[in-house]
């Protein structure tokens, strides 16, 4: 075998190379925020995958819950990517495992901390109001 560890599956995220837009629909308040993402400034902060929906949200003062710190260990950063999903990094099995714990799951659901748009499309993201207070005790 070669020198790579076959077990290490990093989420292969392609980062954007040109500016693009993310529109956040904030379920709890009904507010909308439009963010122009500047690839040169990524990551905006230190939680979640660099360039992820969580990174973009927190970097612009949008309050997206992330109780585990953005490491795919809870599901409180659940978002619904209403437009632009094909431009986002593919979900890993780890992400899918956690997502299953999120209430109100849809086929466009992603973990904000793991979902990284590549900038080839503008993206519309809903932060569901029911994300709040999500603690499941058992699998």
């Amino acid at each position: 075998m070669g020198g790579t560890n076959p077990y290490i599956k990093q989420a292969e995220a392609r980062l954007p190379t040109k500016p693009y837009q993310v529109r956040f629909l904030i379920g709890e308040t009904g507010e909308e925020r439009v963010i122009q993402v500047d690839p040169g400034q990524l990551p905006y902060q230190r939680s979640g995958q660099p360039g992820s929906i969580l990174d973009i949200a927190l970097g612009h003062g949008i309050d997206l819950e992330h109780t585990c710190g953005g490491v795919c260990a809870c599901s409180t950063c659940h978002v619904i990517v209403k437009r632009g999903l094909p431009s986002c990094s593919e979900a890993t099995e780890d992400e899918e495992d956690q997502l299953e714990e999120a209430p109100g799951l849809t086929i466009q659901s992603r973990l904000g901390c793991q979902c990284v748009p590549d900038g080839s499309m503008d993206v519309v993201v809903e932060i569901p109001a029911w994300n709040r207070n999500v603690v499941k005790e058992d699998h």
Binding site: R46, S47, G59, G61, H66, T67, C68, G69, G70
Partner: peptide
């Protein structure tokens, strides 16, 4: 809590505090 559970700390550090860590 049940043994095995964690808490989420909100720390006053980072570019955009709080920094959340489990």
């Amino acid at each position: 809590f049940r043994p095995g559970q964690w808490i989420s700390l909100h720390l006053p550090v980072g570019e955009k505090p709080p920094l959340v860590r489990a």
